[in-house]
Lab assay of single mutants.
Amino acid sequence: KKYKVVEVKENKDGTVELVVENENGEKKKITLSKEELDKLKAGDTVELK
Score class of each variant (00 low, 15 high):
E36Q: 11
K27S: 07
V6L: 11
E47D: 07
E21K: 05
N24I: 10
D13C: 09
I30C: 06
K41D: 04
K49F: 09
K1Q: 13
G43W: 03
T45G: 03
V19K: 02
K39G: 15
K29A: 11
L18I: 11
A42D: 11
E10T: 06
K29N: 08
V46Q: 02
K27L: 13
T31P: 05
D38I: 06
K29G: 09
E7I: 08
K49E: 15
K34N: 10
L18K: 00
A42G: 03
T15K: 05
K27T: 07
I30P: 00
G43Y: 03
D13S: 02
E17F: 11
E35I: 13
K4M: 07
V19P: 00
T15W: 11
K34Q: 08
L37N: 14
N11L: 11
D38A: 07
V20R: 00
E47N: 02
K49R: 02
E26A: 07
E47C: 15
K4T: 12
E47G: 02
K49Q: 15
S33W: 14
K1P: 06
K49P: 15
L18T: 02
K34I: 12
K28H: 14
A42C: 13
K12A: 08
E10R: 05
E36N: 15
K9T: 10
L48K: 01
K2H: 06
V46P: 04
K39A: 05
V6A: 02
L37A: 15
L40V: 15
K9S: 08
L37Q: 09
A42Q: 06
V8I: 13
E21W: 06
V19N: 03
V8L: 08
K29F: 14
V19H: 09
E17H: 08
K28G: 06
E36D: 12
A42E: 14
T45Y: 15
V16Y: 13
G14N: 06
E10N: 09
N22G: 14
N22F: 06
I30K: 01
K2G: 03
K4P: 01
L40I: 14
G43V: 01
E7F: 08
K27I: 11
N11A: 07
E47R: 01
N11G: 07
V16R: 08
E36R: 11
E47Y: 13
V19C: 13
K12D: 11
V6S: 02
T45K: 04
V5C: 15
L18D: 00
K28Y: 14
E23C: 15
L32H: 01
E17I: 10
G43K: 01
K28L: 14
V20W: 03
V8G: 01
K2F: 06
L40M: 06
K9F: 12
D13H: 05
L32V: 09
N24P: 01
E23P: 05
E23D: 08
K34T: 09
N24R: 11
K12W: 10
E26V: 09
V20G: 00
G43I: 02
S33I: 09
K2N: 06
E35S: 13
K29R: 12
V6W: 07
E10S: 08
E7C: 15
E23G: 10
K9E: 02
K34P: 08
T15R: 07
K49G: 15
I30W: 08
L18V: 07
N11P: 03
K41N: 07
L32Y: 05
K1H: 13
S33C: 15
E7A: 10
E36G: 15
E10H: 14
K9V: 10
Y3K: 00
E35N: 13
V19S: 09
E26R: 04
L48F: 11
K9D: 03
V19Y: 07
V5S: 00
L48Y: 02
K39N: 15
N22A: 13
L18E: 00
G25Q: 03
K28D: 04
K9A: 08
N11M: 10
T15A: 04
E7M: 11
S33D: 12
V46D: 14
K2D: 03
E17V: 12
L32A: 07
V46H: 03
L32G: 15
T15Q: 05
G43Q: 04
L18Y: 03
K12G: 11
K12C: 15
S33P: 14
K9Y: 10
N24V: 08
